[in-house]
Design a binder for these strands. Structure first.
Lengths: 206, 206, 206, 206
DNA sequence: GATGAATGAGTATTCATTCAT
DNA sequence: GATGAATGAATACTCATTCAT
């Protein structure tokens, strides 16, 4: 990696953190460059616009998560475990920002939405394959696989992403998920641990 | 209603429309007062800040929708029909803005989210009562009623609010909803019409 | 005149002087407001953009000069004298800026050109009437009156506006002007004084 | 010519075209180097500043045109024809840019003016010699030769350079020119073709 | 000769808010 | 109740120029 690229990556990293902390619109270019300790011109040397930085940030996140998810999808483990692993791959950045981002998270809809759209697009096919594998193995039984996967992802994101949920939420979600995919009761109990993991140190957003 | 109150209500109504059209952040106080034909000072006579206008707008929306929903919940009709009516009450702005808001919908997350949080809080108990009524009548059978209601609302909002969904989406959703509440297949087919209604004139954007 | 209008007029006056001194592009909004001692917002309260200020400046100049010229055209004096008076009305800013504008004059093409276009459009008909009056009186004799007037204005502007010309220039110009309008030699000697007046205190620059 | 010189000349040529198309101020160094495919440093290796590029561009133009004009002035043809040829040499860029520059011509006053000043300085003595030759041959009769030449150049530039003129303009101009130089009516009718030539393919702008 | 990353002062414009009348 | 002139910090973005390699 060249010297110039390192500067650019640092800017992306800082932008990433800022966008999570305060949201895209609320983060000014000035704040980013001040934290990076570079001049205004340097920022605009690397990015044609502020919006381009958002794209770069999202690309970075997607790239990382998708590659982790793909690996998980390819591993030779039982289907339910594999599902857990794939979904887990898409739950971003546990250790890193978890703390910082908790601060203020109200306004980063733009990042959230762009990211969600792209993640959904990447995650749905991946998970659908896992579900179909489960169907072949007799673990699951359902039609409209892609749609059901999409719904479970929407639901899990709306419910758990903010780390604010009860045991009842988890129980109901597991029951719904099992019925959604036509699985036997208990098959997807593993989800409880998956989301529980995110509850403690992943205080993403209120 | 006094003269001053009428002015204030007009400002709220204009702000409401603008927020839907362009989003909260993207609507300037100047635009609101210009459309209202009042002076800057007048705005700040009625509202301590721009943010206060957002709160007022949300209050107005909630109040209207909740009262419609309460009426629906109290009407003596079969439970599935009642559910449709209550949910329908919470789907805002059918006739009025549906057209206008189609224009731009990308940035009004702030309004959306504030509204959603409050609507969820109001809608969940109301719908839960309806579901419990259904349980007593043997139409539904489930535990964690409130949680399940919440999930169906999250899911329906994530899936259908943007009017961009397929027949497969609808089919899967209906199946999931029935299983979620332990209803017999076909019990909740009415949902298809409910969401179809929003698809036509609510060409919001994808 | 209201208070707000006075502020606006002051801004126009300052912009006018700055534009003459340094040119439109080279004058920043910051410089104008600093000299006026007002805040940035005040400027943009009165003008939608910097360009609008240029328009306002030009309007101000045109309005003044045209009204002076119209008066001169209506006065009951001999035709050659009247011509001198009308032309003189269009030679702007003798006393006021003459000094300040001398500083730098290199870049104000934009002002100059916009102004020239509009002045020419106003001056040509006015002077043409005077020339036709002269033709009726037998002082002048020519066709294509408007075109000839336009040419003499272009020529006089190109030659004398910068105050940098010789006696030979004046002599040749007078000869050409007389021949252009078919006047007897000496008829338009008055021009010499007209342009001489601009030479001293109007040390614009070359 | 060395390799470095070729690079420099290419930069001048590109700058020349850009300055004509968009004007000096509106052309950024970035645009020039991008089109040339060289690095920023390369530009500043060849030119101490952007302004220096303008000077270089003007030098290039002058040099070309003056040498063409000198050739024309030395050729053994009748005086009126020679005048036409010399003036024609100074009307720049017939074939090359005529099209490109038509795009935008509003802002390149700086180039225009610098060029005009220098062209005038070069053209006046050259044309004056031609006029004096005409006087010796009895075709022309006038004093203040240089001044009259200058005036005709100013006039022709102000009138015809933008290609927007009428037959009346041409007629009046020819009449004035003949009287200016004391020529017999008809002597300078050739001018009509000269300017007509510029009207067609030189659609610079209105 | 040539590169390209870095600079930083400068640009026009926006906008929520204040306050004397 | 209502006005509208005034504010000033903030914003995204530009661009001629420098310099270590």
């Amino acid at each position: 990696m060249k010297k110039g690229e390192r500067r650019k990556d640092e800017l992306i990293r800082i932008a990433y953190r800022k966008f999570l902390e305060k949201g895209y619109e609320q983060t000014s270019v000035d704040e980013i460059i001040e934290e990076a300790g570079v001049a205004k011109g340097t920022f605009y040397y690397h990015f044609p616009s502020k919006e381009a930085t958002l794209e770069a940030v999202i690309d970075m996140m997607i790239t990382e998560e998708v590659s982790r998810a793909r690996e998980a999808a390819a591993s030779p483990v039982p289907v339910p475990v594999k599902m857990a692993a794939v979904i887990g791959s898409f739950r971003p950045e546990r250790e890193e920002q978890s703390i910082a981002m908790a601060v203020q998270d109200r306004e980063n809809f733009r990042l959230h939405e762009k990211l969600n759209k792209r993640l959904l697009a990447e995650a749905v096919p991946l998970l659908s394959d896992v579900v179909r594998e489960g169907i072949r193995q007799g673990i699951f039984a359902c039609e409209q696989v892609e749609e059901r996967v999409k719904m479970m992802l929407i639901l899990s994101s709306g419910l758990f992403d903010d780390g604010d949920f009860t045991e009842n939420d988890a129980a109901a979600f597991i029951d719904i998920a099992e019925k959604t995919f036509g699985a036997k009761p208990g098959t997807m109990a593993f989800i409880r641990e998956l989301i529980a993991g995110g509850k403690k140190d992943d205080g993403r957003e209120s």
